[in-house]
């Protein structure tokens, strides 16, 4: 069994069975952390290119390690030091990378749809590592993996996502993935940061934090993007912290075995307090580890067969 898609652009592409396949495969890949030799020979001779137009530490490092531990040759291509500065277009850059033999292109870009554009332009397989405020499917998969690992299941769980839902590609991908796996999704945040129409997708919307985390199995805190504050979407950071910041006091009212997650990088003391990140119920550090395992699984599942036979969703 493999993923019958040329590219991974949106989590909406994946069926429940395919998501389960990715998570099961990641479980086996995660064992690499316990081994003296952190190397599988699986992707020898394959070329993985990280094409990053936006700053990223953990996603790029995570893909780089995943590729290297699977024995692929990994090339990092950072926009600020490349011919992008000389005016090369996105699809030209992608075609250049294809001509250099890239089997898989991992792309992060500030514009929604950038990954789709690249996927249409090249025969290489494309993984969306975040396109603007649109989607971040690999982050959502690693979050699903972390929840399943800690809770033993996804079906029937209540997951609360807190923060800037409107601009969050992580939230968008998570809502798709969690709903598909049978979890109940709640979102909480100021009305200006919650997109209209979420209720129609079965999501429960809260504007106060306390009722949103009451009875939740998982609380997933999003990074507050400080640059949004300048646009007047919420009055002040201080007010945000007072209303939505996840503190130890607020956590005391949640379920005793609640799982706390944050996709990183966190603004400590803003959306989440330092002592909550370090709490035993927090999986923030482990999410990073799981990210490598999930990306190893994806690289493996997207390396088989002949990409030309697979339909591009781009």
């Amino acid at each position: 069994m493999s993923l019958r898609h040329k590219d991974l652009l949106s989590l909406a592409q994946l069926s429940r069975e395919e998501i389960e396949l990715v998570l099961d495969t990641a479980e086996a890949c995660k064992q690499i952390f316990d081994r003296p030799v952190k190397k599988f020979p699986t992707l020898r001779g394959k070329v993985v290119v990280n094409l990053f137009y936006e700053a990223s530490t953990r996603t790029r490092t995570s893909f780089e390690l995943a590729g290297k531990w699977m024995s692929a040759d990994v090339v990092n291509f950072t926009a600020s030091t490349s011919s992008v500065m000389k005016g090369e277009s996105l699809s030209d850059t992608a075609k250049t990378l294809e001509a250099l033999g890239a089997d898989i292109i991992v792309i992060r870009h500030r514009s929604p749809g950038a990954a789709h554009l690249v996927a249409r332009a090249v025969r290489s397989r494309v993984i969306n590592a975040g396109d603007g405020a649109h989607e971040h499917p690999t982050q959502a998969l690693l979050d699903l993996f972390t929840i399943r690992e800690k809770k033993g299941r996804l079906d029937g769980l209540t997951v609360t996502i807190v923060g800037d839902i409107l601009h969050s590609r992580v939230a968008r991908s998570q809502i798709i993935g969690l709903s598909r796996m049978g979890a109940r999704v709640r979102v909480a945040g100021p009305p200006t940061l919650i997109p209209a129409g979420l209720e129609q997708r079965g999501v429960e919307v809260y504007h106060r934090l306390e009722p949103a985390i009451d009875g939740a199995d998982v609380i997933n805190v999003l990074r507050i993007q400080r640059e949004r504050q300048a646009k007047g979407l919420f009055p002040s950071i201080r007010e945000y912290v007072r209303l939505y910041g996840l503190t130890r006091e607020r956590l005391a009212a949640a379920k005793e075995d609640v799982l706390v997650m944050h996709p990183g990088p966190a603004n400590l003391g803003v959306e989440i307090a330092q002592d909550v990140v370090e709490d035993p119920r927090s999986a923030v550090r482990e999410q990073v580890t799981n990210g490598v395992a999930v990306r190893m699984a994806l690289l493996y599942l997207m390396s088989g067969g002949d990409a030309r036979e697979l339909q591009s969703a781009g």
Partner: peptide, 14 residues
């Protein structure tokens, strides 16, 4: 034979 077969075999735990 991973690059030559169409269907990736399912990976299980060691």
């Amino acid at each position: 034979d991973l690059t030559t077969i169409a269907q990736q075999p399912v990976v299980h735990k060691t």
